[in-house]
Design a protein around this nucleic acid. Structure first.
Lengths: 354, 354
DNA sequence: ATCAGGTGCTCATACGAATGAACACGAGGT
DNA sequence: ACCTCGTGTTCATTCGTATGAGCACCTGAT
């Protein structure tokens, strides 16, 4: 049994009751002084002072856990990554996002919880584990990762837990907000640039990677091509042809198409090599634009920059809004990507070959 | 008032009481089933099953905050950095530590709390802020940073809060455990290497930076020099002469000393420039060893590697030990640094000049 | 003299889970 | 028939804080 009568708390950390006893008031009075509640601030200056003195003397600090239990927020924002941070950290997939998240969390007075306990060594982390949802420690969470579990996202949404996802993920029945690089606009803008440089016949090459993020790129490309009345030499950017089709290489090598938009750096490298074999050089003969952020490899592609830090900051803001007002709108946010001129896009060459 | 009689929790998250009602048992029974308490596991299989069913049906998840209030651990480990993570992150001062910390936290089933709320935009973070100690959310914390506040460390220790510090910090009256690169051994070992390469007269150059970490380097150097009976050409490595004294440059330029151990890359660079002015080259004429990790700049110094990831892992282990057993020993841990051969230390040249 | 209204507090309870103590019940021993 | 013991479960309390309700007192108006 705890000794509630001895004045100085021995070995034990001070609580409001200790402060109250020392100041000669009740625990509730201490609580009211601390929370500085305006509505019931009928505590006079003199009492306030006595309480503050007792607080200082005992080195009392409020227990945030108990506070939270009573309905207050913990001021904790969770960060759940579907893969461990560390193997990928160097490649800055997560890292830049984290910088933005931390920056904004500091500004808004929140702490971050990195959910690392959810791993099992398999390289995949689960939200619901042992019938427990650790995320509930935090007021809300930011989710990110390359291989999210749709079922978990759906369940989390059903549970009414506030969260945002970095990167676009469509889960039927769970319209949670995503913070997404605006690939649609980026793709359209790249096409516009090619058009402005005189390219009239261009192509698009899909990577084998599927998933929502790519739908946007394809739609943006298609839209711009149609709007600008360009000739499209892709074998069909809406169907399932992935990788680098010979027909595209041919079109570019013969000059039938003068520019190409590709989804990944990997494909772009392959393409450049294939063209080089046929004496066609980039960007002299053919312009190549890449629809992903290749900053990490420093290869100098004409591509785009994902504003990761900015996305992290926005994610925090949206999450806080959701936590503070559960009825707040939950739409996704598109974040503009800057295009990088790079060295692989140039003016269209006026006729060659033939 | 909450409706405690309606069966399905509407909008509200399920708690043990809800599960209990559905399973037709008491809240305590549910608690016992969940914690699987061996001593009082007088709950028969049949009841367990009913409770588990109810849990699944309601999607009940324990509230870790309430659990913690009742003296149980939160399985949260705090990470407090005295400066914000982001401006320094790139330089990997904190970063590599974090990798090790996260890795080990995952393995041991803990989550990490990054205390970012403690900043005020000034670039310095305080533990005690607004008369509150946020760290208490976590079971214990790992502290790291370049400019810790001694008073805060002392208070934290007085409060009996479990924490470890990465890097050596001596605070009178607060013998908390530090996880420290073993600079003493590294310095001694470097001297041994120089000795093995034929150097018989060497010097030591202090950086202007003060602080505990440097005491060890100096002691390790001095010890090895004495033990190996080398001639020491430093102007006095124990007194307050910092920076690059002319007398050392002279000794090296004239060949009176053939090798030098310097505390920082900055000093090493200056020294190399000064020697070059006098036609003396490194390492042909003079060997230079640096007593800090210069991996980041890639300048190829003969130096040491701080095992940051390993240090992070050890910090987690020590902290968990402290949390689980408050009477556990609290000594600091020295972690061995590997020496890097590098390109600035070579065999002693047999006589020159004179 | 009485009462309304304000001030300065305290009381009691809730938050969600954990847990020592205790109770009800049945089996088995004497 | 009565006592003991073990089993299965509930009761009541605790953790530290927040807060609506309410009490005691004082002032000023009627």
């Amino acid at each position: 049994m705890t000794d509630h009568s001895s004045l100085p708390p021995r070995g034990r950390v001070a609580r409001q009751a200790d402060v109250a006893r020392l100041a000669g008031v009740s625990q509730s009075a201490v609580s009211r002084v601390i929370s500085g509640d305006a509505s019931s601030s009928r505590i006079p200056e003199e009492t306030r002072r006595r309480v503050q003195e007792a607080i200082a003397q005992l080195g009392y600090v409020p227990n945030p856990v108990a506070r939270n239990l009573r309905g207050k927020r913990t001021q904790l924002l969770g960060v759940h990554t579907f893969e461990p941070l560390f193997p990928h950290a160097r490649e800055s997939f997560y890292f830049e996002f984290l910088l933005g998240i931390e920056e904004r969390a500091e500004e808004s007075g929140h702490d971050l919880v990195l959910f690392s306990s959810t791993g099992d060594g398999s390289g995949t982390r689960r939200i619901y584990r042992a019938e427990t949802n650790r995320l509930t420690i935090a007021d809300g969470s930011i989710l990110l990762g390359m291989t999210p579990d749709r079922a978990e996202l759906a369940r989390l949404w059903q549970d009414g837990y506030p969260f945002v996802h970095i990167g676009r993920r469509d889960v039927p029945g769970a319209p949670f907000p995503c913070i997404v690089p605006d690939y649609w606009s980026a793709a359209a803008e790249i096409v516009e640039r090619l058009h402005a440089l005189g390219h009239r016949s261009i192509a698009y090459v899909r990577d084998s990677i599927g998933g929502e993020p790519y739908d946007d790129r394809r739609a943006g490309y298609r839209e711009a091509v149609e709007h600008l009345k360009l000739r499209d030499d892709s074998p069909g950017y809406t169907d399932e042809v992935a990788g680098l089709p010979d027909v595209v290489v041919d079109a570019l090598a013969t000059g039938r198409a003068t520019a190409v938009v590709v989804e990944s750096e990997r494909i772009a490298e392959t393409l450049r090599a294939r063209l080089a074999e046929r004496g066609v050089s980039v960007p002299r003969d053919v312009s190549v634009a890449v629809l992903e952020d290749t900053a990490a490899t420093g290869a100098g592609w004409s591509d785009l920059r994902i504003p990761r830090k900015e996305i992290g900051r926005i994610a925090v803001d949206r999450l806080i809004a959701m936590v503070e007002d559960p009825t707040a709108p939950r739409e996704s946010v598109l974040v503009r990507c800057d295009l990088v001129a790079g060295g692989t896009v140039a003016e269209a060459r006026t006729e060659r070959g033939a």
